[in-house]
Design a protein around this nucleic acid. Structure first.
Length: 276
DNA sequence: AGTAGCGCCTGCATGC
DNA sequence: TGCATGCAGGCGCTAC
């Protein structure tokens, strides 16, 4: 599923359901997802208690009572599903199942297997290859106009692909890049280094606001994905541009409406009248 | 050194 | 109906 708001939504559902619970068994029916599972995956997790669940960018971090952290990334199609033991049913693409010392079990489902799981020593979390070059968390105080301007200064290309670069800002994906640029009234084709001063301030505000609103809505649900508790988010109903090509722009009376273009091989949706 | 393109996978919508 | 094609919320690797 997952951009930052969707991963945060999942975290908020899993945390109360799993905190303090002990993993009593693990079932896996694939050797690897995107990458092989780490050595002794089952052994290192079985018997461990989950202390808390945090998030960094689009990664879920399960802190255990050992020094290990279970790092999980959902790729394009990963999801978690909470169930009780009496309803235990394995669906297609349930690749990992966690049993606990309570009635709670968790399935990790991922049809495309672009996600992955790893175990990392908590003291070395920031050295993990997938985490060490991540840029600032957009909802933290460390993400502000000054930082954004700095990070964009050396970028030659357009702003929209730059927003997808996790080294510059962590957690934004294709939907929220499009939505944030619409809110900031900035063209996705504008040069990244050209965003300074007020424009950078508007963009920072737009990014923070769209992410916060999406989290409050329980994330966006596309293609029948479900949250761990079986519910769906509804932010997809509040998209201003994503997937709305050919429709009219809510903020102007232009004739062209919302357009779809391809940037760096990925679709971008915008209104060329509203966004400059 | 920064950036575009490709590949990894499956499921779904579309069009013939 | 059946099949081929294109497309999808991510990201690392490669080649320029």
């Amino acid at each position: 599923m997952p951009e930052l708001p969707e991963v945060e939504t999942i975290r908020r559902i899993l945390e109360p359901a799993l905190t303090g619970k002990r993993i009593t068994g693990i079932t896996m029916n694939k050797q690897k997802l995107r990458f092989p599972f780490p050595e002794n995956f089952k052994k290192r997790l079985t018997g461990r208690t989950i202390h808390c669940i945090q998030r960094r960018a689009k990664y879920l971090l399960f802190y255990l009572d050992t020094k290990d952290i279970l790092v999980a990334h959902l790729g394009m199609s990963g999801s978690f599903r909470l169930m009780s033991k009496q309803d235990l049913r394995v669906n297609a693409h349930d690749h990992v199942t966690f049993m606990t010392n309570t009635d709670t079990i968790v399935h990790y489902n991922d049809p495309r297997r672009f996600g992955f799981m790893d175990l990392v020593d908590s003291r070395k979390l920031n050295c993990h290859p997938m985490l060490r070059s991540l840029g600032p968390e957009p909802l933290s105080e460390y993400f502000n106009a000054e930082i954004l301007i700095n990070n964009l200064a050396k970028r030659k290309g357009a702003i929209k692909p730059a927003l997808l670069d996790q080294k510059l800002i962590a957690g934004i994906g294709n939907i929220y890049a499009c939505e944030a640029l619409f809110r900031a009234r900035l063209s996705p084709r504008r040069s990244a280094y050209n965003i300074r001063g007020k424009r950078a301030e508007y963009l920072v505000e737009a990014i923070k606001n769209v992410l916060i609103e999406a989290i409050e809505a329980g994330g966006a649900t596309l293609r029948n994905h479900q949250d761990p508790d079986g519910k769906i988010g509804y932010f997809q109903n509040k998209f201003s541009v994503y997937g709305r090509d050919g429709k009219s722009c809510e903020n102007c009376n232009c004739n062209h409406g919302i357009r779809k273009i391809i940037q760096s091989g990925r679709p971008t949706f915008f209104c060329s009248t509203h966004q400059k």
